[in-house]
Structure formats: C-alpha cells, structure tokens
Simulated assay, not measured.
Amino acid sequence: MKNTPCLLAAALLLAGCVHGDNVERLQAGMDREQVRAVMGPPEGSTYTPGKDCAYYTVLRDFWSRTPWSMSDRYYVCFTDGKVETYGKATQSAQMTAP
C-alpha cells in the first residue's frame, strides 16, 4: 500500500508521453487520424495558413536515458492535412516552427 502513491504518480507522468518506437512508424503523406493512431493526441500545436505542426514528448529508449534527460520533443508538420515533415525538435527549430 505504501507504493501505491508512487506507482500512481509514475503512471500519470508516463501517460502523456509517447514511446520512441512509435516515431519510427511515421511516414510522409499520413493523414491526421493515422498520426493520432500512432502517436496519440499532441501536447501542443502551432498553426499558419496552409501548415500546422503538432508536438509530442517521446520517451527515450532505456539505454539512452539519463536522470536529467529521459525524453525528447518531436514535431509532426502537416500541409493540406498530410504529413510533410517530422523529426526531433531542437530549440532553434521550435523557435522557427511555423
């Protein structure tokens, strides 16, 4: 019973994250529903006329994790409802993302 609060907190923390294997299933040309089936709902998004990008937190695989860095941020950009680009978001890419 003492571990229940810790397990619950860990489950809530991981619930909003996507596993890294899912990113490998993305392909250019997928529609929004296909991306949602693979990645789940996005954590955030940006919009410009004709193009929008969704952002996800993706857990690193076990061997790539460090205590201060267990996840990466990824983007999926759509043009006319289809995936045009996707990949790991960097600070500079997040600042210039449409």
Rank of each mutant, 00 (worst) to 15 (best):
T4M: 15
C6M: 15
L7M: 11
L7D: 07
A9E: 15
A9D: 12
A10G: 13
L12R: 13
L14T: 12
L14Q: 11
A15M: 09
C17Q: 10
E24I: 15
R25N: 05
L26G: 03
L26T: 00
L26Y: 03
R32G: 04
R32E: 04
Q34M: 04
R36W: 05
A37Y: 01
M39V: 00
M39A: 02
M39K: 02
P41A: 15
G44H: 04
G44T: 06
Y47K: 10
T48N: 07
P49A: 02
G50A: 01
K51Y: 02
K51F: 03
K51H: 04
D52L: 15
C53Y: 01
C53T: 05
C53E: 05
A54P: 08
A54M: 08
Y56M: 01
Y56R: 01
R60T: 00
R60W: 02
W63D: 14
W63V: 11
R65G: 04
P67C: 08
P67A: 05
P67R: 13
W68L: 11
W68R: 10
D72L: 07
V76C: 00
C77S: 02
T79Q: 04
G81Q: 11
G81Y: 08
K82P: 06
K82C: 02
E84P: 03
Y86G: 03
G87D: 09
K88Y: 15
A89D: 14
A89H: 08
A89P: 08
T90C: 10
T90Y: 12
S92R: 14
S92I: 13
S92F: 07
A93D: 13
Q94I: 14
A97T: 12
P98E: 04
